[in-house]
């Protein structure tokens, strides 16, 4: 026989037990992730902040702590506004033309045709993503080479009768960096959109066909609404990754001619490692982190991501 008091103590002990178990679970499951986050995100940011308040340069010698770097970012660096403008064009151009729109077109067309050919085309579009970046850019350099040997020039001159070879790296560098990045970026959207399209119940398309919808109406009323979440996700994710990545640009144009294709992340790199202004680079980088966070938050609000997040399927207590 147990009294009510006994039961209460048992219950309380049970609660205490589950609380300590919860603590253990927390450490076991989230511990590694927390350690990694601290080591590779929090610590570098702190170091970055620290460095940004110094005049650290090539000599690796700190002579004073100063806010001079921030004065430079916000006031004296004339080039910065041009760099930010270019970054905007680059990020939204690549995103709007390739990563979302072209990825969507690829996903829709390759799921509409026969399975075998669809997989084949998707495989082809994945190739650049799978090849090493240096190799990929070497191919681009050959393709746009300003000599008669370049692929583009061969095609233009032999098939379209162009007289003199074009120098695209000089005449259309921004278009080039957008296209070369877009060809790679489109594949991620393609894969995510394809998976989402595959997940749409076939009966919805059948119902729409019987209700009178043609191909475009089916895309508009069935496919696109089902892709709202993936489109939002790809947009935000790719915006952030385009903001901070610059390796293809560095390899293809080195940011040139002059500063014409130097996007913000590359500008940070050039300032810090080409000109040796580590302190200034750190301040610029911190500013980039802030921009990234702001863009992510705006995107989150704009796409109403919170509403799109699904409630957990299993309730965990």
């Amino acid at each position: 026989m147990t009294t009510i008091a006994d039961e209460l103590t048992i219950e309380r002990r049970g609660h205490a037990g589950s609380a300590s178990r919860r603590r253990t679970n927390f450490v076991i499951f989230l511990g590694p992730a927390i350690v990694l986050t601290i080591l590779f995100f929090i610590v570098p940011v702190i170091i970055d902040i620290a460095v940004s308040f110094t005049d650290l340069s090539r000599s690796l010698h700190i002579s004073e702590f100063t806010t001079e770097q921030y004065a430079k970012v916000f006031r004296t660096d004339r080039r910065l506004s041009q760099v930010i403008g270019l970054t905007f064009i680059y990020v939204f151009g690549t995103l709007a033309i390739f990563n979302v729109t072209f990825g969507l077109i690829l996903a829709i067309t390759t799921t509409a045709i026969r399975n075998v050919s669809g997989s084949f085309f998707r495989g082809v579009w994945l190739l650049p993503r799978m090849s090493p970046s240096v190799l990929y850019i070497l191919l681009w350099l050959w393709a746009v080479s300003p000599t008669e040997a370049g692929l583009v020039n061969q095609v233009l001159m032999q098939a379209f009768g162009l007289d003199a070879p074009l120098d695209l790296l000089t005449s259309a560098p921004i278009a080039l960096i957008i296209i070369s990045n877009g060809f790679i970026g489109a594949s991620m959207g393609m894969i995510i959109f394809t998976a989402a399209i595959r997940g749409i119940p076939e009966h919805l398309f059948h119902a729409a066909a019987v209700d009178g919808a043609g191909t475009f109406a089916k895309i508009r009323f069935i496919t696109l609404p089902a892709l709202r979440w993936p489109i939002s996700f790809v947009t935000i994710y790719q915006t952030l990754s385009l903001l901070v990545s610059f390796e293809y640009i560095l390899l293809l144009t080195k940011g040139g001619p002059f500063y014409d294709t130097t996007v913000y992340a590359l500008y940070v790199y050039r300032r810090a490692f080409e000109s040796g202004q580590y302190g200034y680079g750190a301040a610029l980088a911190l500013f980039l982190i802030v921009i990234g966070v702001v863009v992510a938050l705006i995107g989150w609000r704009f796409f109403d991501m919170e509403r799109l997040l699904q409630r957990p399927r299993i309730e965990v207590h």
Binding site: P201, H203, H206, A207, A208, V210, I222, P225
Partner: peptide, 13 residues
């Protein structure tokens, strides 16, 4: 007019 076994109502409408 057809009614499907799964009803196939358009979920976002």
């Amino acid at each position: 007019g057809i009614v499907f076994q799964s009803y196939a109502l358009y979920p976002h409408m």
